[in-house]
C-alpha cells in the first residue's frame, strides 16, 4: 500500500528524514512511532504529496508519488497534524464542500455518505452546528469523518486521538478495528506507545529521521524463551531451580526455559507457592527503547 525507498528530506541544512524505507502492506494496521520532531509528520506529508522529497522514491497504492500517485489519493483518507475546517460552516457543510472538491466524490451518494460517517464518528447529533462551536475532540472526530468520507482503501492518520477523552479514544480504536476488519489498511502515526501496542499489527519506529525498526508486532513481542515466576518462597525456589534463574527482583524471578507448564509442575511439586507464572514477552516500550538506544529519552512513554 505504501512503499518508500531511501526517502530523504532536507530543509535547508537540516536533515529531517534520512533514508527511510517503509513497507506498509495491504491489511496492516501499521503503527508509525516516533518522538515529536523525529520526522514522522514530514514523512506522512511526503507520502501524501504535500512535501516533495529531496531524494528517494514513494509508491502509494502501487503508483509513484508525486505523479500518478496523486490520482491514487482519491482512495486514501487522511488526517494530517490535526483537523481543519471552515469555522463558520457546519460540520455537515464542511464535509459537503470537501467531498465536492477534486475527483471521486459522487454527488448522488454524498448526503448518504455524510450521514454515515457522521454516525460512525459519533457526530450525527451536532452535524448541523457551525464548527467554531465544536470542542477539540469534536473537531478531531470531524477530521476523521472527512477521511472516511470516500470509503478509502487506505487510511493515513497522524495522531488521530489527540484531544479525545479516554471514552473517545476507545470509540475511535473500535472504529478503526472495525474498518480494518472490513478490509481497510490503516497507517497510524503516533507518539503514544500504548495506542500502537493495542491496535497495530505492524510497527515502524522513526528516530531522528531514521527508520530504526520495522517489523510485525507479534514477532517483536514473541516469547523470549524465558519464564517469569512470582513467588513468596524465594529461597526454596532458588534451590529448586538451581542456576536457571537469570534475574531476581523481590518476589519476581526470570527463569531460563520457555515451557511454563513444566516449570509450574516442578515448582508446585517442590512445594513452592506460585502467585503468578507465565512466558516472558518484551513490551513494545522495551523494544522501542532498545531500538532507539541512546536517544530513548526522546520517545514518549505516556500511557
Amino acid at each position: 500500500m505504501i512503499r518508500t525507498a531511501a526517502l530523504t528530506k532536507r530543509f535547508g541544512s537540516i536533515l529531517a528524514v534520512d533514508g527511510v524505507s517503509l513497507d506498509v502492506r495491504a491489511g496492516d494496521i501499521y503503527g508509525f512511532l516516533g518522538a515529536n520532531g523525529s520526522g514522522k509528520t514530514t514523512t506522512v506529508r511526503m507520502i501524501l504529496g504535500l512535501v516533495l522529497a529531496t531524494s528517494g522514491k514513494i509508491q502509494l497504492l502501487g503508483q509513484p508519488m508525486p505523479g500518478a500517485g496523486r490520482a491514487a489519493l482519491t482512495e486514501v483518507g487522511a488526517l494530517v497534524e490535526g483537523p481543519a475546517a471552515y469555522g463558520h460552516l457546519s460540520g455537515r457543510a464542511n464535509l459537503g464542500l470537501l467531498d465536492a472538491m477534486g475527483k471521486g466524490g459522487v454527488r448522488r451518494t454524498r448526503a448518504r455518505r455524510i450521514d454515515e460517517v457522521l454516525e460512525q464518528v459519533g457526530l450525527a447529533a451536532v452535524g448541523r452546528r457551525p464548527v467554531k462551536a465544536y470542542s477539540l475532540g469534536m473537531r478531531q472526530r470531524l477530521g476523521l469523518a472527512a477521511a472516511l468520507l470516500r470509503q478509502p482503501r487506505l487510511l493515513v492518520l497522524d495522531e488521530p486521538t489527540n484531544g479525545l477523552d479516554p471514552q473517545g479514544i476507545r470509540e475511535i480504536r473500535e472504529l478503526l478495528l472495525q474498518l480494518h476488519a472490513s478490509g481497510t489498511t490503516v497507517f497510524l502515526s503516533s507518539h503514544l506507545l500504548a495506542e500502537v501496542e493495542q491496535l497495530c499489527t505492524r510497527v515502524g519506529v522513526l528516530d531522528r529521521g531514521r527508520l530504526v525498526l520495522q517489523d510485525d508486532l507479534a514477532k517483536l513481542q514473541a516469547p523470549t524463551g524465558r519464564t517469569v515466576v512470582h513467588t513468596p518462597d524465594q529461597d526454596r525456589a532458588r534451590v529448586l531451580l538451581d542456576g536457571r534463574i537469570e534475574h531476581r527482583d523481590r518476589d519476581r524471578l526470570v527463569v531460563r526455559g520457555a515451557d511454563a507448564a513444566e516449570l509450574n509442575a516442578m515448582l508446585v511439586s517442590g512445594g513452592v507457592r506460585v502467585t503468578e507464572l507465565g512466558p516472558e514477552r518484551r513490551s513494545l516500550e522495551q523494544v522501542v527503547l532498545a531500538a532507539t538506544d541512546t536517544s530513548s529519552h526522546q520517545v514518549g512513554v505516556t500511557r
Binding site: L73, V76, V80, E81, A84, A85, M101
Partner: peptide
Amino acid sequence: GTLRYLLVRP
C-alpha cells in the same frame, strides 16, 4: 490548515 486537506483530496 484546510489547504492540506484540499490537496490530499486530491
